[in-house]
């Protein structure tokens, strides 16, 4: 809804010409449309929350086995690193949103770019992590390892979607498509990015922190 939604729709007079009996469309005020968009976006995020909650429930249920509640054998430092990178990217996304609210185009473009870069580094980190993890376990081995690939995979898919949104925002941004008054595209992409980020905080805890690594892992 980035560009059209905020401009008053001026075509409705043409519709009246087609049918003289009744009136045409009463245009929806931009501020009102923005409220619709925000509510719709938040409802979408609530909906997505149920998906990730379901995955976390799977992790909790399947994590319990004969060794107690276990977690996969993962590189703690790498996990902490990519988590930090994703959190920092959220900071830049927020910075971009604040910048466009103040019509600061340079900061906006720079911050969006940095956020995309950090997002891509995060995806790269996940791929590296997968490569490392494959030394210890396979997706088709024990469910614990399988869940690691499933959870990081589903999340990475959302991160890639978020990066695509940010890329759209970035390329439209450098061509001057947003302003302090009209930047729903930026706002929605930022909201989505923050959400994906918050999901990772939970996934990080679920995969890296809770539970114990069993002594005898069948490699």
């Amino acid at each position: 809804m980035s560009t059209t939604a905020l401009e008053p729709i001026a075509h409705h007079s043409t519709v009246i010409e087609h049918d003289g009996h009744h009136g045409g469309l009463i245009p929806i005020a931009p501020e009102r449309q923005l409220q619709f968009n925000r509510l719709g976006m938040w409802l979408f995020i609530i909906s997505e929350t149920f998906l990730f909650a379901g995955i976390l429930i799977m992790r909790i249920v399947l994590g319990r086995n004969e060794d107690g509640f276990t977690r996969p054998e993962l590189s703690q430092s790498l996990g902490l690193l990519i988590t930090s990178i994703l959190l920092v990217s959220s900071f830049f996304v927020n910075r971009a949103e604040v910048a466009i609210k103040h019509n600061d185009r340079f900061q906006f473009n720079l911050s969006t770019f940095l956020a995309i870069l950090l997002g891509l580094i995060f995806v790269g980190g996940v791929v590296y992590e997968w490569d490392e993890a494959l030394n210890h376990f396979k997706p088709d081995g024990h469910i614990e390892g399988g869940l690691f690939f499933f959870m990081t995979g589903v999340h990475a898919l959302h991160v890639i979607t978020g990066v695509l949104f940010l890329l759209i925002v970035f390329f439209n941004g450098i061509r001057g498509h947003y302003s302090s008054k009209s930047h729903w595209g930026v706002e929605s992409a930022a909201l989505y990015w923050h959400f994906v980020d918050v999901v990772w905080v939970f996934f990080y805890v679920a995969l890296y922190l809770i539970g114990t690594v069993p002594e005898t892992v069948a490699h």
Binding site: L43, I46, S47, E48, F50, L51, G54, I55, M58, L62, P139, D140, G141, H142, I143, G146, L147, F149, F150
Partner: peptide, 24 residues
């Protein structure tokens, strides 16, 4: 708009088990 996500999760997890053999 909330519960449907669980349907998707149930079906996609079976699909993933069929495709890449994650033993859910």
């Amino acid at each position: 708009f909330t519960a449907t996500q669980f349907f998707g999760l149930a079906f996609i997890s079976v699909l993933i088990e069929r495709w890449v053999n994650i033993p859910f």
